[in-house]
Design a protein around this nucleic acid. Structure first.
Lengths: 170, 170
DNA sequence: GTTAACCTTTACGTGAACGGCAAGGTTGTG
DNA sequence: CACAACCTTGCCGTTCACGTAAAGGTTAAC
């Protein structure tokens, strides 16, 4: 069941603590404003609200937020692209509800299959980005080689040609 | 000398054609405004100006612009970061002038060495970015595996536990 | 030398992604 | 119940990366 079955025999499994917005912000290195903004544009909604309407986030929310941050900072995606990659929060909420509201294994399977497809698309998006970056490295490596050639020429004390920049074939 | 010595025996080597801003823009899929803006913020200056002050770009400029576009689109760097990576255009112009104004091989070597250092820093920047992306892929792969576990459970017709999201150790 | 198609600078406008208040409600601790 | 420390929803401000005219000069072709 869970990673280590709790000693409590038949009670609710000590539900995980829900965090308030500032705790989440501090944990992830974001500002509360940013998190609220992400909610505004439909990137994630808190798992719950307190009686007084405080936003309350669970571990899943935090994982999602961390991924959003990575997509923004590390991958350089725009929030719009991130939204497309993650499917909007409304759909996620709907799917969670659908999953819980049914016991039909086939239907549950469909929902999980769907999630799997999204994750796969996320992964190939990232791989594609890596390939483009590798292309850029190759490009830069070309310039590097060119410069090394130059250095070799200079070290050989050659009569310096007046700065040729055309690609050299070898 | 150059990639194929030109037939012209002792004349200037048919200097390469300089392009006007719109031709450059079309060739790279940018707008003229964007190119002018990049000049405004010090990312590149045209190799020359016509008598009537038209901007004229050479092949080097275009290569630089293409790299800038890659850093922006593929790597997702901000223009400020790109500026730091490329060293500002003023420095580039100065170095070009210094390179041409000297015949001293040692001095030239220093300049080229400098350029090599920059290219190396660019490459490690890109590699670093790739590593971060690979980290994200690993993360997503974790979620993927988790989903696959779920699917296996469902297919096995197991009594569905009420949606456990804690990391599973194996 | 006229004309269309380019170009120049200057300047104001815009969408994205937040920052930073104000005015008020909520929570937990003493 | 008082109080500090948090939270809420507005709403306006800002920076980045350009878009979009406006008013005029330049180039190349005819």
């Amino acid at each position: 069941m869970s990673h280590l079955d709790p000693p409590s025999p038949s009670l609710a499994v000590a539900d995980p603590p829900l965090l308030r917005i500032q705790e989440v912000a501090a944990a992830l290195g974001l500002t509360t404003r940013t998190i609220r903004y992400y909610e505004e544009v439909g990137l994630l909604a808190p798992a719950a609200r307190s009686d007084g309407a405080y936003r309350l986030y669970d571990a899943d929310d935090i994982e999602r937020l961390r991924f959003i941050k990575g997509l923004r900072d590390d991958a350089g995606f725009s929030l719009a692209e991130i939204g497309r990659l993650l499917e909007d929060e409304a759909a996620r909420t709907r799917n969670r509800a659908r999953f819980r509201s049914t016991t039909d294994a086939t239907e549950r399977r469909a929902i999980v299959d769907d999630a799997l497809g999204r994750v796969d698309r996320q992964i190939s998006s990232l791989r594609e980005k890596i390939e483009r970056l590798e292309g850029m490295i190759a490009e830069a490596d070309g310039r590097r080689t060119h410069l090394l050639d130059h250095i070799a020429e200079l070290d050989a004390g050659k009569e310096p040609a007046p700065h040729d920049h055309r690609p050299r074939r070898r």
